[in-house]
Design a protein around this nucleic acid. Structure first.
Length: 493
DNA sequence: CGCGTTTGACCGGCGC
DNA sequence: GCGCCGGTCAAACGCG
């Protein structure tokens, strides 16, 4: 009997254990369900946003075609042979090919179009895996698409190339272009891609701004209007890479370094180089797709527009129309009218005294919107404390390999490369990522980048803050080949 | 010796 | 046509 009693007690104890075990399991299940529900809700929200944007896009598309039609008729009627008209023709090519450059009231419309077409290009692979997402989708911008694929400075391609080198046709887009349209358009597209430039302004005390790439200096000139010499660099990561950059100090504020990138990388980039590539990529894609702008409503800038890209501050100029709005004293940027240039202002300080800088400052103020989550200020190495602990002392992420390119030994002071702005995101809260990303979708003119940010933030939520933060800050994340974020398991229905 | 920088020469586009 | 100017080339040079 005693045995039986003990056995009973044991049974009870075991029963309690099992009960507790079952209870905890149920609890976990319940928690998981709740989490799933939350995720679903988020997905639903995103879905709604996307649907709304698609609706707007379609409406704008219709309007755009009407406008384009009218413009064509006008041009045929007023065809002229002087140089001015030649420029206009070039512009019209831009419009017809990349669905971008449209002046006046239609700018805002193009913006979305471009954004979507860019999205189509960039996130195509992702979209293929997501039936419901259907983002790009029906944006059949024929030539525009081809223009994007090619012209999107590789900036995207470098990253893409890490994922899928096959897609990286390399810089000369001619192959891609050949798939669309013929002769003249092809030429103009190539011309456009070749001329597109992304100008980065950053407060920097060193000789050059280290962007992670390896550069070889091939020339130096004293440009008119600026006592500071302009240095010319060529990418040496790959012999065939034709990417070039110009580095020059701002004549008005010697602490500001102006770096202008031109061309597209046709090779995988080192991890440390994907940062600037991502930024310039988004900027260039915006530029080449004729983007516009959150700034359009702020003032009357007939030829210059601005926009925020994930909080980054872009200043877009259309030199083909007029360059007078472009930093007047910076010969680096305004010299060549045939070079559409987009300026990314990473200077946080009060600025420069030129009239144009007031634009930059004004637009910079718009960036504050995201400042709580993303720090965009470029800081020199002397402020290591600003880096999240998760980042190594070098500023490099600790995940992945150490496969970054060695710093140019000729410019040891370039070590601050790793302090690229988007890495500075310090107060990142993963739970805010979705909210921020969705806000980006709604407000960001560069839909492509915004959407990527949203997806990546979702994908990365729950993983390391680095992942989330970086993804959020980056428009393109493909460069981080070490992280398996390219094969998202998240599904947006 | 290899790699990168320096620097004067050269080329081409553009405006007058 | 000419000159200006930005951009590039390539030989010379420096450095490790």
């Amino acid at each position: 009997m005693a045995m039986g009693k003990r056995a009973q007690e044991d049974d009870i104890a075991n029963g309690n254990d099992r009960f507790e075990e079952a209870f905890t399991k149920d609890d976990q299940l319940e928690l998981a369900r709740i989490e799933m529900g939350e995720v679903r809700e988020e997905n639903e929200r995103l879905k709604l946003y996307l649907e709304r944007i698609m609706k707007e896009y379609k409406a704008l598309q219709i309007q755009f075609f009407d406008i384009a039609k009218q413009e064509d008729q006008k041009q045929q009627a007023t065809e002229d042979t002087d140089t001015a008209s030649a420029q206009e023709l070039e512009e019209s090519d831009l419009v017809s090919l990349s669905l971008g450059r449209v002046s006046g009231s239609s700018v805002g419309k193009d913006e979305k179009r471009k954004s979507l077409s860019g999205l189509e290009n960039k996130d195509q692979k992702i979209n293929e895996d997501r039936e419901g997402l259907a983002l790009s989708l029906d944006c059949k911008f024929g030539a525009a698409k081809s223009g994007m694929t090619e012209s999107l400075p590789n900036n995207t391609s470098p990253e893409n190339s890490l994922e899928d080198p096959k897609e990286d046709a390399g810089e000369p887009p001619s192959k891609v272009l050949k798939t669309m349209r013929s002769g003249d358009d092809e030429v103009s597209q190539q011309h456009l891609a070749k001329k597109a430039r992304v100008c980065v302004r950053a407060s920097c005390d060193t000789m050059t701004m280290n962007d992670g790439c390896r550069w070889r200096k091939y020339g130096q000139k004293i440009a008119k209007g600026n006592p500071c010499p302009r240095a010319y660099f060529r990418c040496t990561v790959a012999p065939s890479c034709s990417v070039r950059k110009q580095v020059q100090r701002c004549a008005e504020d010697m602490s500001i370094l102006i770096t202008t990138y031109e061309g597209t990388h046709n090779h995988p980039l080192p991890v440390s180089a994907t940062a600037m590539a991502s930024i310039t990529s988004a900027a260039a894609s915006m530029l080449l797709s004729g983007s516009s702008t959150s700034g359009s409503g702020q003032g009357s800038l007939p030829t210059a527009t601005t926009t925020d890209l994930n909080g980054l501050n872009f200043y877009l100029s259309d030199p083909s129309r007029s360059k007078q709005y472009y930093l007047p004293n910076s010969s680096l940027m305004m010299r060549s009218p045939s070079h559409p240039t987009i300026t990314l202002d990473l200077t946080s300080g009060p600025a420069i005294t030129s009239s144009a800088s007031s634009y930059l400052n004004r637009f910079a103020s718009g960036t504050a919107r995201y400042s709580s989550s993303i720090s965009l200020n470029y800081r020199p190495m002397s402020e290591p404390s600003t880096l999240p602990i998760s980042w190594g002392t070098s500023g490099l992420p600790k995940y992945g390999t150490t496969d970054h390119q060695p710093i140019n030994k000729s410019n040891p002071q370039e070590a601050f490369l790793h302090h690229l702005p988007y890495l500075q995101k310090t107060n990142y809260n993963p739970q805010d990522s979705i909210a921020v990303a969705t806000e980006a979708i709604i407000t960001n003119p560069n839909f492509q980048s915004a959407l990527t940010a949203a997806l990546k933030s979702i994908i990365c939520t729950g993983s390391s803050p680095i992942c989330s933060g970086t993804a959020l800050a980056l428009g393109n994340f493909q460069g981080y080949s070490g992280e398996d974020v390219s094969g998202p398991k998240v599904k947006l229905e």
